[in-house]
């Protein structure tokens, strides 16, 4: 027998987590994100305990300075700025998460199919990818913003509700954002499909879907996870741009992007109204990028073994 003494089997995920835990910047970014999410989720709690409202307008408290329950003062319509930022954060962060996940899932699926099927399927899918990458984004966004949803058969109730704007953004971001991940996954799949364990799996009678989901994707997932975190920051910025163009979140709901849009007219009177959401977007995107960098290092086996 050639058995040798081994350290206890540790899963790859434990290894990756240990490496991430040693990266101070990534941990700081993670802590900041968790704090932000916790605060945003607690928005109604703050409203109740402080006795303020993020949505009700009050002409007597317009532009009131911080104090009297308004920790950061009130905005141009007398709404409490602090809780409004938290409420906007709910939307901005969840759109960031949904949009990033959605585009990564779509990209992974398309990339894996293209890379594994090869031939004509690959050609068609990759030309579609090239096509989407070469679309000019800004005019496209304006066109999508002008799209009349009632002509597409949606009910007026849905269009007037906040949900329409929300899902419109998630959809736009997903449909435009999957291309990078698709290219990443396709490249990994092409390389992995040549590996002997894929041939071995085929020799054992595994089907194409089984091989893709069990043997190829788990080996190709590292760059995808990194790309997804980085995409979150990008999506939050895109949401800001969309809201700026008026496609996005409509009152009484809000997001950091639309708060920024509203504040632009008031930049002379109340610059802090632009400053707060801008700072939050900045902090979030930096934190996410720190976490993304940390994940990239943690998932790369070349950054030492244990």
């Amino acid at each position: 027998m050639s058995e040798i003494a081994l350290e206890p089997a540790i899963s790859v995920w434990t290894l990756r987590w240990r490496r991430l835990a040693r990266d101070r910047a990534a941990l700081l970014g993670l802590a900041v994100l968790i704090l932000l999410i916790a605060l945003c989720v607690a928005a109604p709690l703050f409203e109740r305990t402080l006795g303020v409202s993020a949505t009700d307008t009050d002409l007597f408290t317009r532009f009131s300075p911080p104090g009297d329950g308004h920790w950061l003062g009130a905005d141009d319509a007398g709404r409490d700025e602090f809780t409004r930022l938290l409420q906007g954060g709910q939307i901005s962060l969840s759109i960031g998460l949904l949009g990033a996940l959605g585009s990564s899932l779509l990209g992974t699926l398309i990339g894996a199919v293209a890379g594994y099927a090869r031939g004509k399927t690959d050609m068609v899918l990759m030309r579609i990818t090239d096509g989407i990458i070469s679309l000019p984004v800004l005019p496209l966004l304006i066109i999508l913003a002008a799209l009349d949803l009632s002509k597409l058969g949606f009910s007026q109730d849905f269009i007037r509700s906040g949900a329409a704007g929300y899902w419109r953004i998630v959809l736009i971001v997903t449909l435009l954002g999957w291309t990078g991940v698709a290219r990443l996954v396709r490249a990994s799949t092409l390389a992995l499909a040549e590996r002997e364990f894929v041939l071995a799996a085929r020799a054992q009678g595994a089907s194409a879907w089984w091989i893709l989901s069990v043997h190829i994707l788990p080996n190709a997932i590292s760059p995808v996870i990194v790309a997804t975190t980085l995409a979150m920051g990008r999506v939050i910025l895109t949401e800001s741009a969309l809201s700026f163009l008026g496609v996005g979140i409509q009152p009484p709901q809000t997001s950091w992007g639309s708060m920024l849009t509203n504040a632009q007219e008031l930049i002379g009177n109340a610059p802090e109204l632009a400053l707060y959401p801008g700072l939050l977007i900045l902090v979030t995107v930096i934190a996410i990028n720190f976490v993304g960098d940390g994940l990239q290092a943690a998932f790369d086996p070349r950054t030492d073994s244990r």
Binding site: E196, A200, A201, R202, A203, Q204
Partner: peptide, 25 residues
């Protein structure tokens, strides 16, 4: 044909390191 593979005709490969998936136990 696929269902016969592994079930009635199985194969062992030369290099066991590369023929096993590195991320699956």
């Amino acid at each position: 044909r696929r269902l016969l593979r592994g079930k009635r005709v199985a194969m062992i490969f030369q290099e066991p390191m590369t023929a096993l998936n590195p991320v699956v136990s």
